[in-house]
Amino acid sequence: MNGDTPDTAARETPAAESERRAPKPPPLSADTLLAAKDTTARVLRKTGYMMKVTFDQGTIHGVVITLFLITSVTALLLGIVNRHTADLILAAEENRLRDAMRRVIAADAFSRRDTELAAVYTAERGGAPAGYAVVVGTEGFSGTVTLVVGFDPELAITGVEIIAMTETPGYGARATSEPWFLGQFAGKYGSLQYGQDIEALAGATVTSQAVLNCINEAREAVWRYREGGGE
């Protein structure tokens, strides 16, 4: 008999506990329903009143319409200007690239062939193949250094020019202001390394290495393009 007691307690406890913790809600009476209806109505009236006040003062309308008008007019203006300048901007960029390519390789026509590594352009002079111009960029000391490298059909470098960089003035930027640096690459074959035939800029190791990486990558891109069957 004694052993029965805990058993019964265990069986009854959960039900008793839940009863104590959450007493059943009293059944909904007509009064509660009416009260709820009243509250809802009051809240709705209040909201409606607030909205009415806001609309009467014109703030919501004013804000939405003014902002819409200002953005639309601005967008229209931008669209018009863009329509008239887009071609000019594109042409200016292309001219610049073409001029740079003409300076690194003696040719009069270039056609773009994209490869995985870089944009390779095949160059022609008077209808005959003159070599390649490659646009390639690598990370320099501060930002990307972008070069155009020219190769003749035997893959000797014909010229190198930097078209974009943000290197430090007086240090890395000497790559453009000291002509001997880029000039020393002309006529070189094969994979290049500083200290063998070519010299780095003193005080600008990172920039010098970036330029060299670009040149080696450009050669790799041309080589792969030719391996791929293009000529």
Partner: peptide, 10 residues
């Protein structure tokens, strides 16, 4: 933006 586009073009 207009100034930027004009500068780029001209």
């Amino acid at each position: 933006t207009v100034a930027d586009m004009l500068l780029k073009a001209l």
